[in-house]
Design a protein around this nucleic acid. Structure first.
Ligand SMILES: [Mn+2]
Ligand SMILES: [Mn+2]
Ligand SMILES: [Mn+2]
Ligand SMILES: [Mn+2]
Lengths: 136, 136
DNA sequence: AGCTCGAGTTAGCCAATGCTAACTTTTTCG
DNA sequence: CGAAAAAGTTAGCATTGGCTAACTCGAGCT
């Protein structure tokens, strides 16, 4: 109802791409040692040109560092954001699984939902994962 | 994990503004008889010029009809989308309330989450609202 | 060494969604 | 009635996040 609602959602969307990218970059580094642009091309199903543009913005915003033709690295801020985003993502996905949703659906839905979950809602989900469902 | 995940999220976002607008227009008509652009300016906290642009797209897409200086009306397709969006929205918001989240947070979070909830997840939420929490 | 081919870069384009500023129309009110 | 205020329109602009096409770089193979 309050008009600030939609402003917050616009902010959520503004940080969404950054969050998903740093998470994917951290995953690639964890799994394959380095992250190359092509890893992100496959992961997000966008073109190499789009990845390049996006990485440029992330670098501008201090989340990654790249040098021409080199793998993509995360800054300290990028690593922090990646860790934090992954934690939140895991809680949302785990919660959906707990709700009885299939693994495939939980994976897909949580990828969008995660960016719109406030601290309060995240805590409620976490509580379910550790303590079980609320009474009644 | 599958690359189609992010394609679906991009589609979710592409329909998000349309869904929120037709819902708000239907609400305004239900509450005040007509919907004027200024109602949407207040609701979404954007400028009148932005509302005008957006309404133009909705008209192009066959969801609303407007004539200069006249109130905004929904087409049959617009009404259908509004009804469907509101139902989904109410389930998501009700579910968050049931989870123990405050009314204010449930209102805000559901406004973003609603657009990323698949049929399967929506059904799981609906089940909680009618039958209570899953066993375990 | 030289070539080829995959990967990366750059330029140029588009649509969506936001904005401000200037103008027009309608409504309201003295 | 007429002026001021409110509402609506239009023009022009920016950013994000997509795309294609053309070019460059570099790794690896013959
Ligand atoms: Mn994520
Ligand atoms: Mn995501
Ligand atoms: Mn919404
Ligand atoms: Mn979203």
């Amino acid at each position: 109802m309050p008009s600030k609602t939609y402003q917050r959602i616009r902010l959520d969307h503004a940080s969404e791409v950054a969050e998903d990218y740093v998470e994917a970059i951290a995953d690639a580094i964890a799994e394959r040692g380095v992250c190359r642009a092509m890893d992100l091309v496959k992961h997000f199903a966008v073109t190499h040109a789009t990845v390049n543009n996006t990485i440029g913005r992330l670098q501008r915003d201090g989340l990654v560092v790249t040098e021409p033709y080199q793998p993509i690295e995360l800054t300290a801020a990028g690593k922090r954001l990646a860790t934090q985003s992954r934690k939140r993502h895991e809680i949302v996905e785990g919660f959906l699984r707990r709700l009885g949703v299939s693994a495939a659906t939980a994976a897909t839905d949580s990828e969008g939902i995660e960016h719109h979950v406030s601290k309060e809602t995240l805590n409620a989900m976490k509580r379910v994962l550790t303590d079980g469902w609320p009474s009644e």
